[in-house]
Design a protein around this nucleic acid. Sequence first.
DNA 1: TCTGCATGCAAGTGGTTACTTGCAGCGAGT
DNA 2: ACTCGCTGCAAGTAACCACTTGCATGCAGA
Lengths: 209, 209
Amino acid sequence: MQTTTSKKNEPSVARERLIEAALKVYARDGLSRATTRVIAEEAGVNEVTLFRHFQNKEGLLSEAMRHFVESMGNQDIGEEEAWTSNLKENLRRFAAGLYGKMVQDEAFVRTMVGEAHRHPEHARTIILDTVRPIRCRFVQNLEAARAAGCVRQDVDLNIAVEAFTSMLLGGMLKITANCSEGYTGDDYVAVCVDLFYAGIATPQGVSQG
Amino acid sequence: MQTTTSKKNEPSVARERLIEAALKVYARDGLSRATTRVIAEEAGVNEVTLFRHFQNKEGLLSEAMRHFVESMGNQDIGEEEAWTSNLKENLRRFAAGLYGKMVQDEAFVRTMVGEAHRHPEHARTIILDTVRPIRCRFVQNLEAARAAGCVRQDVDLNIAVEAFTSMLLGGMLKITANCSEGYTGDDYVAVCVDLFYAGIATPQGVSQG
DNA sequence: TCTGCATGCAAGTGGTTACTTGCAGCGAGT
DNA sequence: ACTCGCTGCAAGTAACCACTTGCATGCAGA
């Protein structure tokens, strides 16, 4: 029989295609509205195959989340260079990289923010396992910069980094919803970097103008 | 017949109860999962009455959004006092007030962030009509502070305010999802105020330590 | 007292949902 | 050649969805 999209060469192609499709549909339609039928269609796979691989809708969701976290773990935001010198430029690169990634995954981010209540464990896993490593490296870099005398001593770097990433996240949510007025994402990121740099740098180290 | 919850004294009680219930259910279950049956139940009103008042589900949604925007317009975040003096204290009060309001409406905020794609006009209306006035007042206050010499000249205040509110929004989303580590919302707000103040204040005006 | 309006209740319609069952083909390893 | 696992397809089930219809009730104003 003419199977429209089946390949059957590699082992368990359908499974991978279903997971990829699921993530796509989750992002596009939300976790609630992502139906097994639509996911299977998107994957080019029979709906029954979905239930044969993952017992039910929730099983697919869990597997898809695990896959997402793993695939994100292999990615880097900003190259780690010498953060002790040229702090502002490093901040700029980090912010631009993180903001770009967030915009890229905007739909998925929205879905997870919106459904964090209904799927608390998945939301927590994703936030902790994907953004924490990034944040930790960021904190370490700032600590190095502080050791070099570029960063104020009287500020909690953990919270400061949280505030910086939140600034980028919140801005992305508003800008991509077309609710910003008269400025672009690049403008926004630039101001964030400027403010944050001026906020954490040691006063005598702030380059003015 | 024994009507369980009807009052029938005031005019059109059902309508108001339906709108209140709808907002509650939207926040709790999301826009997609909020069913007419559940909303009617929550309102203690027959489901048919819902369709008689608002033609369909979308009609109720629109009315509920309008109601939300109106009710928010009557609320104030921070009292407007003399912003030219004691800038940091004013920032603190504003931030605490806004953060508190966001936490209060956390579920609704999440719903709107998550479904902004599927209901772009409502999302835009809400963001623009409810948070813009607050932001505008904030910008004006900062401009006054700048005129008094407390605020740097070389920063776009519109974007800076956007960054500040985004910082609070993003932090709230993470903290209320139990994804913060070792700090409270108050800690977070305090650091945000500290960073932002150090970020926008004129260098000579920064009180150190 | 009569009329109109808002509401409740019971029932139903057509569509969609998650999920199941039974059957058949096809490729790979033995 | 034969089996076995993966897959497709057709069909069905029970629940739920938005939304409708018809009828009864009770309150308010005339």
